[in-house]
Design a protein around this nucleic acid. Structure first.
Ligand SMILES: [Zn+2]
Ligand SMILES: [Zn+2]
Ligand SMILES: [Zn+2]
Ligand SMILES: [Zn+2]
Lengths: 164, 164
DNA sequence: GTTAACTTGTTACTGTATAACATGCAAGGT
DNA sequence: ACCTTGCATGTTATACAGTAACAAGTTAAC
């Protein structure tokens, strides 16, 4: 199994060429600005994540990359995914052992993820208010905060309505 | 919260019989109150987590269990660990693929974890302020929040001082 | 004491991620 | 242009994490 993303189920359509293209070109601009090399595998990997509804496991990504003529071994996918994550173009969802494209790569943001238990969709939410609260908790423990993973589990709005 | 917090490794000794024993007997009382069966493997698993500095992987736990004469196969460890997690006696640290004893099992708490990059210690912090902030973010997305994983990465106070 | 539910143990397997090494490519110095 | 140096991609092989399915033993309820 392991097809983590469910097509056409979760949400409002975010697969329109416009938004994928828009994010892709943002990513390209960003890479250029930072002197990063958005090579074919990496770019294609980002595209794959953008096309997917929800998050994709590394092996799902690998399958698609291999189908496109790239390498078929796990490191190929993991390297591309880690590159994207390291540079803020994608996020790793630890609860799902999966990855998702960043919805707004231009910001240096601290994101929280809302994971629907019903449809497995993953929504990236701004964590602006969460940061300070976490900071405060860290301070209380004398802990110097670097970065954080925030993953919430529940029901997305579409699935709630469907259930009603 | 009068807990003798189980804060990790580089810190003051927390392996003294007193705090381990204290938490263990809290766990026992709690199990009794809730009609749970804290069987030998489960109890020993909790002990192992309490004795450990930092979080332990399932296979580390398994090794110790096997050494104590319990089963030597993965399900033995996973079942005991999942039991403890399900009943709030331990927590799963997803970033580390590891488990840690709950520092204050008596509360129905939403915890955040502070993971030190230097010494790998894991400190359980109260997440009282984080909950509402996350709730707000979820509301904005029409998402019904169930539970959340909050894991921060940085430097614990001991390691900072050591580095200075 | 029989039944039903749960707990422990097993074997076997699936899924996730990395190590180590070879080859290829691209930028920078001479 | 040529060489060097570092980075990217690809490979094989292996390590690490987690679960399914079944058998046998326990515990609690009736
Ligand atoms: Zn993002
Ligand atoms: Zn949903
Ligand atoms: Zn806890
Ligand atoms: Zn530390």
């Amino acid at each position: 199994m392991t097809e983590t993303a469910l097509s056409g189920f979760c949400c409002a359509d975010h697969s329109g060429a416009s938004s994928v293209e828009a994010i892709l070109s943002q990513a390209e601009a960003l890479a250029k600005a930072r002197g990063l090399r958005l090579t074919p595998v990496r770019r294609r990997t980002l595209e794959i994540l953008l096309d997917a509804h929800g998050a994709l496991g590394a092996y799902d990504v690998l399958e698609r990359l291999a189908a496109d003529g790239f390498g078929a071994q796990p490191p190929v996918a993991y390297r591309a995914l880690n590159f994207l994550v390291d540079h803020g173009l994608a996020h790793r969802i630890r609860r799902l052992n999966a990855f998702t494209a960043c919805a707004h790569p231009q910001h240096d943001h601290r994101a929280a993820f809302l994971i629907c238990e019903t449809c497995a969709s993953v929504t990236e939410a701004a964590a602006d208010e969460i940061g300070p609260a976490l900071q405060k908790a860290a301070d209380a423990a004398g802990f110097t905060l670097d970065r954080a993973t925030i993953e919430a589990v529940g029901q997305c709005s579409a699935c709630q309505e469907a259930r009603a």
